[in-house]
Design a protein around this nucleic acid. Structure first.
Length: 419
DNA sequence: TCTGGGGTCCTTCAGCTC
DNA sequence: TCTGGAGCTGAAGGACCC
């Protein structure tokens, strides 16, 4: 679900658009999380509904179009969303349901083309060049996909059809909700040049402001600016990339398999925390979660990084590259804790901490070296046992003693051993 | 207004080696 | 032997995406 909203003048079609050469489809579910949640609450259809956590610092995950009419957008703080739309019904996210529906939708995509590149749970690129002889022209394939998803999943989607990923993505955004937009190959540049710079992929608030300072308001303005000017203002890669996109040059292929490069977890405290013991305990929990996910994915990483966000929202990161790759909870925690302690914070008020494992490779590639490391071996075996227990009895059934809620508070607090 | 969580990519800088 | 530059790597921060 794109967060940036824009529009172009409506165009009337005297005849179906020419979709020859437009083999890239971008399919995006409409208000996916909200639509999926309403499958079990059909009584709320046609009403403002906001999906988001109940915590005081949570943000909007999604909202129905009825709620969006009041100004509610995704990523908006829940408190603000409730003020804007006080009569909206608020539902807690149901991530298992979203994942199940997403799996079914991706299976539908795969039945059309073997070249499917998921971008998130609710959107994907499809290269349908190999399906045209079997299923017809791209716009017909897009229509069939929309019908199938609506019939089988009960939710609507929008599809952009174009010659490149960038333009297909823009087109699906313009087609929302429940629409289909084909951008003929020969109209690509004219289509792009009427858009505001903020519509471009990779242009967020900061870059948009930077472009505005240069007097550039539309994609056409960017296209007609010397590439060296853009590179000086925005950096080499971004400047060159935007200039290419502004002329419709985008040779990125639809890539079915994308390997993860990092795995991590972070947590915002309900209230700012200045107690090092509390923060160490959170680091342990996040390291444990990160390591478990890495093992589950069959990956190991070599760089451990932590993120600390303070009460004033300034954020710092610290990282260390280890001698060997690891997926061992205790090793990741020990590194994360050391990185945190080296900050030397004196009762600083911390809003968020995070742990991330980077430089991932397949665990199989590093298994031999890992087994030679005796001290680590014991922890690795313990992790495997915890993973097996989790599979059998449920995630979190076995966890470090320091993460088990204490019955007594106060004097226990200072004696927890996190080493 | 008061900002989640999970990621990727880019830029800059420092340290090291050749 | 000293020095400057190129190239690489790691670390840190920032912007962006969904």
């Amino acid at each position: 679900m794109s967060r940036r909203q824009f529009s172009v003048p409506a165009r009337t079609e005297a005849q179906p658009p020419d979709d020859s050469g437009c083999t890239v489809l971008h399919v995006d579910m409409d208000a996916f999380y909200a639509s999926a949640s309403l499958l079990s609450r059909p009584d709320l259809r046609g009403t403002p509904v906001i999906i988001g956590g109940a915590g005081g610092r949570s943000v909007v995950l999604s909202a129905t179009y009825e709620a969006r009419a009041f100004g509610v957008t995704s990523a908006m703080p829940m408190a603000r969303a409730r003020r804007l739309c006080p009569h909206a019904v608020v539902l807690e996210p149901d991530h298992r349901r979203y994942a199940a529906i997403s799996d079914a939708i991706m299976a539908t995509f795969s039945s059309v083309s073997e070249h499917v590149e998921p971008l998130s749970l609710d959107e994907a690129f499809l290269d349908v060049s190999g399906a045209i002889r079997r299923l017809g022209p791209p716009s017909r394939i897009a229509g069939q996909l929309r019908d199938t998803i609506a019939d089988e999943q009960g939710i609507t989607c929008s599809v952009g059809v174009a010659a490149t990923k960038f333009v297909a993505k823009l087109a699906s955004g313009l087609a929302k909700p429940d629409g289909l937009l084909v951008v003929p190959r020969h109209e690509t540049v004219a289509f792009l040049h009427q858009l505001p710079v903020g519509a471009m992929w990779g242009v967020g608030d900061k870059t948009e402001a930077q472009l505005h300072r240069l007097g550039l308001r539309t994609v056409a303005d960017v296209a007609h600016t010397p590439v060296d000017t853009l590179r000086r203002a925005l950096g080499d890669a971004v400047g060159r990339g935007l200039h290419d996109l502004a002329w419709g040059r985008d040779d990125r292929r639809v890539v079915p398999e994308r390997r993860e490069k990092s795995i991590g977890a972070d947590e915002t405290f309900a209230h700012d925390v200045d107690d090092p013991t509390h923060i160490h305990r959170e680091l342990l929990r996040l390291a444990d979660r990160t390591a478990a996910r890495a093992r589950s994915a069959g990956m190991a990483g070599r760089t451990v990084s932590i993120k600390v966000r303070f009460a004033d929202f300034t954020t710092i990161t610290r990282s260390r590259t280890l001698r060997q790759h690891t997926d061992v909870s205790q090793e990741i925690f020990a590194t994360a804790r050391e990185l945190y302690d080296r900050l030397g914070l004196q009762r600083a008020r911390v809003r968020l901490v995070g742990v991330r494992l980077e430089g991932l490779v397949s665990a199989g590639e590093v298994a031999v070296q890992g087994l030679l490391d005796e001290p680590e071996h014991g922890w690795r075996e313990a992790d495997r046992a915890v993973d097996r227990a989790g599979t059998r009895f449920g995630a979190g059934s076995v966890r470090p003693a320091s993460l088990i809620p204490q019955r007594r508070s106060g004097s226990q607090e200072g004696r927890r051993d996190l080493s």
